[in-house]
Structures are given as C-alpha cells and as structure tokens.
C-alpha cells in the first residue's frame, strides 16, 4: 500500500468519524435551550426533506411518481417495508416504460 494513499484514506476516515461523533460530542451533557430543543425536534423531518427533494427532482417523472406511490403505501399501511417494495418496483417499471 502506498504511503500517500494510506495517508489520504486515513485523513478521510478521521474527518468522517469527526462529523459522526461531533454531533454527540457537541450535545453531551448540556441541556439544550427551549429554542434549540425545538429546532432539534424539527431537524429530522427537515433533513429528510432536504435529502429527498433534490433527489426526487433529479430522478424525473418516474422517480417522482414512484416516491409518491411509496408515500401513499406508507400512509395506508403504516409500514415501511411495503413502501420500499412499492417505490423500487414502481421506479423500475416506469423507467422501463419511459425509456
């Protein structure tokens, strides 16, 4: 293994672990203010929306319809696995039809 490659990989590993542990570390022990607690309550939904919105737009009509279908199944069944199956099956089907 080359030295510069090992060095680069270890630097990437260190940075990545820092971002993963940093959130725990920053919040350790301190009781968050009411405002911060409210922001953290809203953070999961906001992050998930931020993850999926550009992804949905970039995936075109097939992707958007598939995600809408997955959401519908999740609402109707209240379960995650049927929604995953529906999303994957729908996007594969629509891509095959549209392309």
């Amino acid at each position: 293994m080359r030295t510069d490659a090992t060095l680069a990989i270890l630097a990437m590993a260190l940075v990545t672990y820092g971002t993963r542990a940093g959130g725990f570390w920053l919040m350790r022990g301190l009781p968050p203010s009411r405002r911060l607690a409210a922001a953290l309550r809203h953070m999961p939904g906001a992050l998930l929306v931020a993850i999926v919105a550009p992804l949905a737009l970039a995936s075109g009509m097939a992707g958007i319809v598939a995600l809408a279908g997955a959401a519908l199944i999740a609402i109707r069944t209240g379960r995650v696995l049927p929604a995953l199956v529906a999303g994957v099956a729908l996007v594969a089907l629509l891509r095959a039809i549209l392309h």
């Binding site: 997955a70 959401a71 999740a74």
Partner: peptide
C-alpha cells in the same frame, strides 16, 4: 431507490 423510498416513507409518518 430503496433509500429515497425509505426517506419518503419516514416522512409520511
């Protein structure tokens, strides 16, 4: 699309 579908299913809840 497994992960995007997971995200959407979570958001639905």
């Amino acid at each position: 699309f497994v992960f995007p579908a997971l995200v959407v299913a979570l958001l639905a809840g």
